[in-house]
Nucleic acid binder design. Structure first.
Lengths: 250, 250
DNA sequence: ACGCTAGGTGTACGTTGTACACGGTTTTAG
DNA sequence: CTAAAACCGTGTACAACGTACACCTAGCGT
C-alpha cells in the first residue's frame, strides 16, 4: 500500500465526504453502499460480500459502487468503523463495571456483525468511531495509578479475550448459516469420529464426556470474562505491581 | 457438507492411508503434499496457499495433488492436525504450570504457523494430534475437584485468550510480509491519521500517547496470560465456586 | 444553449478450486 | 507371457472474484 492510499483511507474515514452539485442526481451514496454491504455481510457472511452482490441489493451494478467507494478494502474500513459506531461508550465509574461494559459492547458488536472477526485487523486504518470507543475504555482505567503502558495492556487484554471467544462464535454462526445444520446436530452426526475417542487414546476426553461435560457447557463468554476481570483485579489492586516489561512481543 | 464427506474426513485424519501396490510409483504422497503446503503457508501466507502453488513447489501440477488429498478443505484439516502434532503435551504437575505450558505450546504453534488462525475453526474435523493435546490439557485440571463442565471451561478460556492475542499477532506478521513495512514504520508514516487525534476528540488516547504508553508496550501475550491464570486461580482456589451455568451461549 | 463534470453500464483480464477425459505405468490374474 | 485392472499425473475448461477501461447520459454553471 502506498502512502497516497493510506492518506486517502484516512480522509475517507475522518473527513465526511462533500457532495457535489454537478452531474446527474446520484442514486447511490457512500453511506447507502456501506449500509447495504453491512446487511449483506450480516445476513450472508463475509464470503458473500462481493461487489456484485452488494450492487445487486441496491438495484445497481458492481462498477457503480466504485463511484462512491475507492475499492473493496476501503469499503471494509468503512463497514468496521460503522459497526463500532453502534457501540456505546463505557461509562465513568468503578473500573470493573466499566471494563465489563466495554467487553459486553464488544461482544454485542461481534454478535451483530460476526464478519468483523473474519477480516484482517492489523493495519486497518482506525476510524473516528473505533477510536472513540477505545478512548472510553482507556478512560475507565485512567484513575487507578497505572502507567500508560499498563492502561493499554489492561484494555487490550480484555479485547484479546473477547476476540478469542468472538472468533469461535463467529465461526459457529458461519457454519450454521452455510450448512443449515445446528452445532448440536453436527456433532451428533459424527459417529465415525466418536468411534476413535477411546479411553486408551483420550482418557480425559472420554471421562469428561461421560461425566456430561458437554451436555450443559458453561457459557464461554460469561465464564471467561469473569476470570479475566478477576485476574485484572489481582493486578490492579496489588500493592506493588510486578514489572512485566519487555520489548514488543513481535 | 454431506455425511459421506464427513466420514471421509474422519478416515483421512484418523486412519493412516494405506499405500497401494498397483500402478506407477507415486512421485507424491499425502505427507509430502501436506508438508509442502505447510511450507508455502508458513512462508507466503494462507492467501498464497493455492493448489497450483503447492504443486509448483513439488515440481508437479495442481491436479496431481488430488490423487493424494480429496480437496483443499481436507488438505487444511491435515495441515492443522500436523501443526498440533508439533506441540508437546502438557506435563502432570501443579495446574498453573500445566496450563501455562499448554498456553505457551499454543502460542508457539501460532507463531510457527500463523495461518492456522486465519482458517475457519468451527466444524473442522479434529484430528488425533489435536485431540491428544486437548486431552493433556484436560488432564492438568482433572484433580482439582472441578466438575466436567468447569474443566472444559477452564481449558477453553485459556485457549480463547491465546487465540485472541494470536490473531492480532498473525495479522501483524501477514501485514509485514505483504507490505515489507514493519509495524513501527507503518504507524510512523500515519501523519495524516495522527492529525485527527486531538485532545478534544480523544483525550485519553492523546494522554496515553504523550505519556509514552506506546513506546515500550508490555508484551501482550505475557501480560494477558499472567492475568488469565491469576483469574483462574481465584476460581480454582475458591472455597465455594459460583454456579455460572447457562445454556450454550450460541 | 453549451460544455464540463460526475453517475452508471458493459466488457475484459487474470486467478481461484476442481470436474472430466486422457495417456502412461506398474502389478496382478489367467 | 499376455491381458486386464488399477493407479498416477496432465491438459483443458468453467464460473466467480475484484477492478481497469472505455463509453453513454443527465444535469448544473456559465
Amino acid at each position: 500500500m502506498k502512502q497516497s492510499d493510506r492518506d486517502r483511507a484516512v480522509r475517507l474515514l475522518w473527513d465526511p465526504p462533500a457532495e457535489s452539485s454537478r452531474g446527474p442526481k446520484a442514486a447511490l451514496s457512500q453511506s447507502r453502499v456501506v449500509e447495504a454491504a453491512m446487511k449483506v455481510a450480516d445476513a450472508e457472511g463475509v464470503e458473500a460480500l462481493t461487489m456484485r452482490r452488494v450492487a445487486e441489493t441496491l438495484g445497481s451494478t458492481a462498477m457503480a459502487l466504485y463511484r462512491h467507494v475507492p475499492g473493496k478494502s476501503e469499503l471494509l474500513d468503512l463497514m468496521v468503523d460503522a459497526a463500532w459506531g453502534e457501540t456505546e461508550r463505557a461509562p465513568k465509574g468503578p473500573w470493573r463495571e466499566g471494563l465489563e461494559f466495554y467487553a459486553r459492547q464488544l461482544w454485542q458488536m461481534y454478535r451483530a456483525h460476526p464478519w468483523i472477526l473474519q477480516l484482517p485487523h492489523a493495519r486497518r486504518t482506525p476510524g473516528p468511531r473505533t477510536m472513540a470507543s477505545f478512548d472510553s475504555a482507556l478512560a475507565v482505567v485512567s484513575d487507578l495509578g497505572l502507567s500508560a503502558e499498563e492502561m493499554v495492556a489492561v484494555v487490550t487484554a480484555v479485547g484479546h479475550f473477547v476476540d478469542g471467544v468472538g472468533r469461535t462464535m463467529a465461526d459457529r454462526v458461519k457454519a450454521e448459516r452455510e450448512t443449515g445444520v445446528s452445532e448440536e446436530a453436527w456433532w451428533d452426526g459424527q459417529d465415525a469420529l466418536w468411534a476413535h475417542f477411546t479411553p486408551d487414546r483420550l482418557p480425559m476426553m472420554v471421562h469428561v464426556w461421560n461425566s456430561g461435560g458437554y451436555e450443559r457447557p458453561l457459557d464461554e463468554f460469561e465464564f471467561g470474562l469473569a476470570r479475566v476481570l478477576d485476574g485484572l483485579a489481582v493486578f490492579i489492586e496489588a500493592e506493588e505491581r510486578p514489572a512485566v516489561r519487555r520489548e514488543t512481543c513481535l
